[in-house]
Design a protein around this nucleic acid. Sequence first.
DNA 1: GATGAATGAGGGTTCATTCAT
DNA 2: AATGAATGAACCCTCATTCAT
Lengths: 215, 215, 215, 215
Amino acid sequence: MKGVKSKRMPRAVRERQMMDAAVQTFGQRGYRAASMDEIAELAGVSKPLVYLYLNSKEELFTACIRREAAALIAAVEAAVEPGLPADRQLWAGLAAFFTHTAEHPDGWAVLHQQARTHGEPFALEVAAMRDEIVTFVTGLIATAAREAGAARQDPELADRDVAGLAQALVGAAESLAGWMNQTGAVSAKEAAATLMNFAWMGLGELMKGERWSSR
Amino acid sequence: MKGVKSKRMPRAVRERQMMDAAVQTFGQRGYRAASMDEIAELAGVSKPLVYLYLNSKEELFTACIRREAAALIAAVEAAVEPGLPADRQLWAGLAAFFTHTAEHPDGWAVLHQQARTHGEPFALEVAAMRDEIVTFVTGLIATAAREAGAARQDPELADRDVAGLAQALVGAAESLAGWMNQTGAVSAKEAAATLMNFAWMGLGELMKGERWSSR
Amino acid sequence: MKGVKSKRMPRAVRERQMMDAAVQTFGQRGYRAASMDEIAELAGVSKPLVYLYLNSKEELFTACIRREAAALIAAVEAAVEPGLPADRQLWAGLAAFFTHTAEHPDGWAVLHQQARTHGEPFALEVAAMRDEIVTFVTGLIATAAREAGAARQDPELADRDVAGLAQALVGAAESLAGWMNQTGAVSAKEAAATLMNFAWMGLGELMKGERWSSR
Amino acid sequence: MKGVKSKRMPRAVRERQMMDAAVQTFGQRGYRAASMDEIAELAGVSKPLVYLYLNSKEELFTACIRREAAALIAAVEAAVEPGLPADRQLWAGLAAFFTHTAEHPDGWAVLHQQARTHGEPFALEVAAMRDEIVTFVTGLIATAAREAGAARQDPELADRDVAGLAQALVGAAESLAGWMNQTGAVSAKEAAATLMNFAWMGLGELMKGERWSSR
DNA sequence: GATGAATGAGGGTTCATTCAT
DNA sequence: AATGAATGAACCCTCATTCAT
């Protein structure tokens, strides 16, 4: 009876509105520059309610990180069919990653730019998610090596190398995602293709025992 | 006679102390979270002096970005001998890049994490430096293609592809540098080697006309 | 129960308290010398609340100017009965003016001394009010001339002269008001009488065509 | 040998430069808004020298008030020939007053606007000068009354009335001077003529015993 | 006679957070 | 379930003022 502004909504809904507003604000302004005032207003809610549901700015930020990380992981996992060959799995995962980050730029900014820049507690939160992905990629590379089977000519492609490669691959993907969001130069599929071309084939060479040497 | 805190130093020296303190503080806390009070204290100076010499937080930050960017570019350029083959040049540049970022983690954090996250004026400052590096790498790749000379089997490796590859390579390097700084898992040389293996060989394949295909 | 400082008051009330404190402080200290801290304390309120309601020192000052200007105009208008002869109207207006400025010395100081000394935006605000008064006085003089009717011997007392006279009259009144407030030498009624004697009679001479000449 | 900037000037000259700069800055910015930095720079001198010669901002301001007050008084006194009739003396004094204030707007602003707005010590300084002028004008009116001699029909034009008239006259002149400086609407001679017309003739009536009465 | 180097103190403004209803 | 009212603590910045040379 007070106007159009909705009132008395179930807690879950209100909470989602707040977190949506928070992700958007944190993603665009950064953690420090985002104000609780702005978030509350964007959520169409009074500030005390934000505190009632989410306790503090830190907890709110953490909740955002967790939600966005989970959503990203879920998107990637949903895209990967376990039965396929490793390269096809990697391709699918990369495409899903680029698609998701392109569709949720604020969420991705929270994870990639903000969370890592504002102290250990947040950085650890995001590092956990990143590890999950790296582990997944590591597994794919190992599987690829196994699939290469008899053809495997380099028994020295040690676990440690595989881990490093996965890190580099994920890092390159993250960097490309940021570039995409900021410049809009390429589509998600193109980004995935570029990365596969750029990396997978070098990977193949590596597995054949080739190495670049500075000497 | 008051302690170690020496007084009355020439302006240039004080200015350097302040910028050292600023880079450290900005790098660790972030632009917004860093306080001028903290920077002044870390520099062993009163706050007004910081303003007298550096004018404002924004200008101080910009000065930091410029100094660190120039130092990074200088380190890479100093390491590259123009006479060498392209792959050797790239290797030297990468090694210098990883070494420099490892030795100046706060400076790198300022450039890579903070400057890009806090508004256009700062982001443009860094983008200029990045472009310089990307251009340099693009040149190296083009040279490599030329050196591959008669052996070149893919006349379709167009300029656009070369640029994309340079972007991806630089992005991967940036990402790896961040990973190094945060986890300390690998040394600068190892990082450079990983990247050369990961990318250069794939590059070779690409130049031979090979492509990964999702079909 | 904590003392006299009552808490939790409706916004309108608090706002008035703040503006009262602001007028007093601005009037006594001047715009620059007045500190928001002092105003807040005098209002019995924390500084952030002042900003929450009044936004900034500039806006607060502007609000003070507007409120005091409106109050002064209202006091003068309330005292003037439109039906009376012009000289009686002028007398009533002057008396009300002197009474009001004597009763609200800080408000008058804000209008007359502070607002005109601190930059265009503020000065324009007061100039608008002053123009309103000058226009009113100009009307009275014109009416007086008309009332002088047949007796009017100087058809050359042009509009321009009337306007100049009004300016001088208002200026003299303003100056007298300041003198009253600062020295307390005369009462409001005395000031009004002095001015009527001083000016109105000379005005009569002027309308008869008399002029003082330096030759 | 250091450049064009003059050096090693006799103290008196330097001091005058500083006070010129100070009057200009105080007049335009106001006492609080004027910074010692700005004054020193405008004077072409280092800040410590300003302190060496003039001790503090307050003393510098006081010195400005005194110098400008003395100059104004001197200008008025120089214009008045004691032998002339009172009205001619008053005319000459007013003309000199308006001319001087028009030629030294910053000095006049310091006296009229700034000095009265920033606390007792300064206000008293300027009140002293004002009293000097008021006393002078009071004397002129008294003389005029005496000159009116036999014609004098009002033995009740008491000293107190004369003083009040002088105050009003001076006040009106001050107000007109401010209006001139701010709008440039009239010349000094015009302002003097307006005031003589406006006031002197009413004065004549008064001396004839006429009074305006509210009844 | 003159200055480069330096600071204590304070002012305007904002923000995360809470209380009373 | 929800909010209007309110604040402690900081933060950026400036200024009058002083040493040491």
